[in-house]
Amino acid sequence: MGIQSISVDGETAEIRFLDVPTELLSALRRIIIEEVPTMAVDNVLVLENNSILHDEVLAHRLAMIPFYSEKAVEKYSSPEKCIECTQCEGCYTRAFLEVSNEDSDRRVVYAKDIRPEDPDVYPVIPDIPIIVLGKGQKISVELELRLGRGKEHIKWSPVSISVLLSVPLVEFDISACQNSEDCLKCVSSFSEELSKIISKKKKGELKLEKFSNTSVLRFCEDRPCKGCIKVNYLENERILRFESTGSLSPKTIIDLSLKTLREKLERVDRMMDEIGVS
């Protein structure tokens, strides 16, 4: 049981697990999406808006902007604490967006036009267009941001992708093929390398170390290679891959998700204790 490899490339991270129960990894995957907190716009106070977009549409667009939350996750109270209270400290931070277009034909308002109160909470991607203002149009809004979780609304999810994959194992026996040429051709459009190995080894099995998408291989398995190739997915070798929206670094996401998982398990443990099971 253990971690085989971790690779982080910018916003994406890939972790290879060996002999870790699927249930645990799946929980981790889901926690990454729904439990890891980030900062996002929660309330929008519209002071002025004579643009084409209605207040609620503008608010929705602002909510979709990922905010840098690396420091905020420490600084602000957890969403569970904040959900009840109205005037509490350390729950909300504000940001302002005030743009008016007096004379140009069109003015695009970008995420970078948002002026945050807290220098640690700012739009991760400055060039997200929010709205186009026509001549004479103006928006002036006050944003309230707070920590939240993806299970409440997807805007608080720190990731855009989070998948748990199994490593495929290809079993092959070229002699069983009806038309080995077609089969190899099909496989080669998946991977030249695999095709070469199959035609060389004739019979055997191979674990795919590098793969992105096994759909083509499954297509071959179903069609030209019927009976001579079988794709199995390994139970004990799993890959967890996720891509951050930028609000949190992959490392923080993993840290926080593990922390959450631990807390959850501890909670279960406590509950067990309370009813005296253990």
């Binding site: 249930e23 748990l164 499954r218």
Partner: peptide
């Protein structure tokens, strides 16, 4: 790099099983 029949390997989001 996609299957010509449009089908893709999918995992169940609830369990993580293929």
């Amino acid at each position: 790099g996609y299957s010509p029949d449009g089908r893709e390997v999918m995992y169940d989001g609830r369990t993580g099983e293929v």
